[in-house]
Structure formats: structure tokens, C-alpha cells
Design a protein around this nucleic acid. Structure first.
Lengths: 217, 217
DNA sequence: TGGCATTATGACTGAATAGTCAGGTTTGAC
DNA sequence: GTCAAACCTGACTATTCAGTCATAATGCCA
């Protein structure tokens, strides 16, 4: 029984994973409409009909990729409280988001395109959850401000700012690569993170934790 | 003669403008592949063949929309010198970019998708010009830093940061609207601009010009 | 061995759609 | 009036592509 399940899972699950990875790549670089099932199949090294065996429609496949993406959004900031240190918490959040941009740029791009196109596939569940998350984080930041721990900045704009500037490194990597002349490596991301943390925290009137201090200064 | 040209121009130019506006809308919300010539024609209120009379191929039409977009990128910052005041100059640049996000969100979206998809249609001319612009701006910011006018921040990351956070209001307007419960109006953009200027300039160790001070504080 | 579930796939279909073409109409100059 | 250039358009073609279907192979257990 265990054996059976294991084998079943390993065939099906393995193919699903291969297909999802191929689809992620294709959707990220060409969008939903720009991607054909045949392309995904070729990338996955499988016949097209086999792809459609695992995912009934192209749209189903896209939804699967998209929800895989959304599951990456979780963060330590989700669990923060007003007792936490704002500088440490925000710095860690920025660092986490930057790390995501580095390790999962395709996910970020897919999400970006989904939003740019009007988010037709983000359902009410996602919207509600996202709203609740936002409310919670805003409340905590407001408490920090009340307690005089940081300058009075509108928490909404602060969060938009963090999302924008961190996701930018994934979504606009093409532009950044062309301007720099080469791709950003791990150390470059590390530098960028420090600068981002420094500029954002300083902007909020917070001291930059040592860990994020820029070496050269 | 003048009459002839004027009339010729008014028929052709008028239709071109109508088509470009329709195409901008369609491309911004559905991308290149997601948009059919028929859709553009319907939006423009013209038969499809008439659209193809003015723009030989869908790709030609897209290129026309894209270059229209790029022509909006010009800014007062382009002409700045090291003698200028960093606070005023950067604040004005941020405000200009925010105004562009408000008045031309579709252009911003088209540019964003072009970059996300690997910028296949941005030619060497654009890349070179963009590189030169970047070098020039970086040099000026470095001078400001040398002169002790602002904190030492890496100019590259500063500029990425400004682009990211301002364009975000156009590209991710769907997300922002859902979180706020309503679309951002002119006054909301004005508030957002002030916050962005404040957080960015403070992050650079600059005093915020009165014009951008947040009222409630 | 036989039987069942899962997995695999080539051949096909129908719809969408970019672009062509041939012929038509309007406009303005002379 | 007439001529040329610009403008307009219905009908058609060729291609791409999502999704179906009928038919297999495979693996597993009794």
C-alpha cells in the first residue's frame, strides 16, 4: 500500500513538478497568451497530450503555477507584533523579499503580469486574505509610530514602497542587467539589500541594524 | 498646398491617433499576444483592414505604441547639473514620475511588460541612450555626495528605487485599488508623492522641501 | 494470468486570427 | 471634368493552437 502510493506519487507528482517548472518558465517570459501548451510540453520534454493529461486546460495549468507563486508570499513579518523591533522586523522583511526576487524571479514576474493585466485570476479568497494581512501590518506599524519608535510615515505607502523596490529587482532584471552590463550575482543582491534597507529605514527614522550596514561606509 | 497637406494630415493623422490610443489600451491590459487586431479595430471603431492600412502589421502597431511611450520618459532631471540642489531636483524627479504614473498608467504598463518579457523590442539605440543617461545622472549624484550635500548612497540603487516606487503606482494600480477599496484620485497621488519624496529624501539625508511636506505632520 | 487504474500519445477538429488582395470611394489639384 | 493619390473594406487564405478521442502501454495486485 505504502509502496503503491509512493510509486503512484512518484510518477504523477514527478511529471506534475516537471510540467509546472516548465510552465513557470514559459509564462514568466511570455505571459499566458504568449505561451502555447506545445512550448510547455517541449520544455518539459513530454508530448503535448501528456501535459493535458495532468492539467486539463492551459488555464488550469496557469492557475496551478499562480497558486504555487502565491504560496511563496509568506514571511516572518506575517507574525510580527507591536513588541517587535521595527528596525529589525522591517529590515528582515525587505531582506526576505529581496531574497525571493533573487531565488524566484519568475514567480515575481508572473505575479506582476497578473496584476498588470487586471488580476483576472486572483479570486476573492486571495483578495480577502491580502486585505486582512494589510490591515494587520498597518495596525502594527501605527502602534510603532504611536510608541515613538519610528517617524510617522503612512504605513500603506511604506509597504507599497517595499514591495515595489524589492520586486523591481526580479521584474526589471532585464533592464538592470543591460544597465550594469552583467547579471546581478548573489553578492550584488546582498549589496542592493543593504542599500535598500538603509535608505528605507533611514527614511523611517530608524537606526540601521549592523547586519545591514554598508561595508564601504 | 497648405490646405492639401492639412486635410491629408487630418484624415490620416486623426485615424492614426485613434488607432494608437485604442492599441495602447488593448496592449496595456492584455499584452502583445493577448491583443488581436480585431479588438483594436473594434475599440477604435474602424474595420480591421483599415487598421492594417495604417499599420502594416500588428508588430508595427506595437512598435509605434512603444515608441510613443518612450518619448514620455524625458524629464527635467535630464538637464540637471551638480550645481543644482539635490533635494529640489530629486523631489521634482519623483513628482514628475508619479505624475506620469497618474496620467499615463497604460504607457507604464506596456513598458513594464516589455521589460518583464526580456525587452525584445528595445533596440540598441534605446539601450545606448539609456546607458548614457544613467551614467550622466550617476555622475551628478556622486558629485553631490562628494560635496557633502547628501548621504553617501549608491546612485544606481537610488535610481532603481525611484523608478520602482513611482512606476508601481501605475503598474500595480489593480492591487492598490483592491487594497484601498477605491481608485486613487489626484489628491491621493499628491499624498503618495509627498510620502515618497519624504521617505526617499530623508533616506538620502536631505531636507524635504516645504512643497513636499506632509500636511498632517 | 487476468483485470483494473493510471499513464501515455498520435491523429484529428474547430475556432481564432494575422495578413492579403482586389476592387471600391473620396479628395484635392489643375 | 479628370487624374492621381490617399483612403477604405469585404472576402478570402494560411496558420496556429487548445482541446478531444480512440487507442495503447504500463504497473499493480489477486
Amino acid at each position: 500500500m505504502t509502496q503503491t502510493l509512493k510509486v503512484d506519487a512518484s510518477v504523477g507528482a514527478r511529471n506534475r513538478a516537471i510540467i509546472l517548472a516548465a510552465a513557470e518558465k514559459a509564462f514568466a517570459s511570455q505571459g499566458f497568451r504568449g505561451t502555447s501548451v506545445q512550448q510547455v510540453a517541449d520544455l518539459a520534454g513530454l508530448p503535448k497530450t501528456n501535459v493535458l493529461y495532468y492539467f486539463k486546460t492551459k488555464h488550469d495549468l496557469y492557475i496551478a503555477v499562480l497558486s504555487q507563486t502565491l504560496s511563496l508570499w509568506n514571511s516572518r513579518f506575517d507574525m510580527a507584533t507591536q513588541e517587535d523591533d521595527p528596525a529589525e522586523t522591517l529590515a528582515a522583511y525587505i531582506a526576505e523579499k529581496m531574497e525571493l526576487s533573487r531565488t524566484h524571479p519568475m514567480s515575481s514576474k508572473i505575479f506582476a503580469m497578473e496584476i498588470i493585466n487586471g488580476a483576472p485570476n486572483l479570486d476573492n479568497y486571495f483578495n480577502d486574505a491580502h486585505n486582512k494581512w494589510m490591515e494587520g501590518r498597518v495596525a502594527i506599524i501605527e502602534k510603532w509610530i504611536e510608541q515613538g519608535k519610528m517617524r510617522p510615515v503612512d504605513p500603506h505607502y511604506l509597504l507599497y514602497n517595499i514591495w515595489a523596490s524589492t520586486q523591481h529587482y526580479a521584474d526589471f532584471s532585464t533592464q538592470i542587467t543591460r544597465l550594469r552590463g552583467c547579471k546581478m550575482k548573489k553578492v550584488d543582491f546582498s549589496e542592493a539589500t543593504k542599500h535598500l534597507v538603509t535608505i528605507t529605514l533611514t527614511g523611517c527614522g530608524l537606526d540601521v541594524p549592523d547586519k545591514y550596514k554598508i561595508d564601504s561606509l
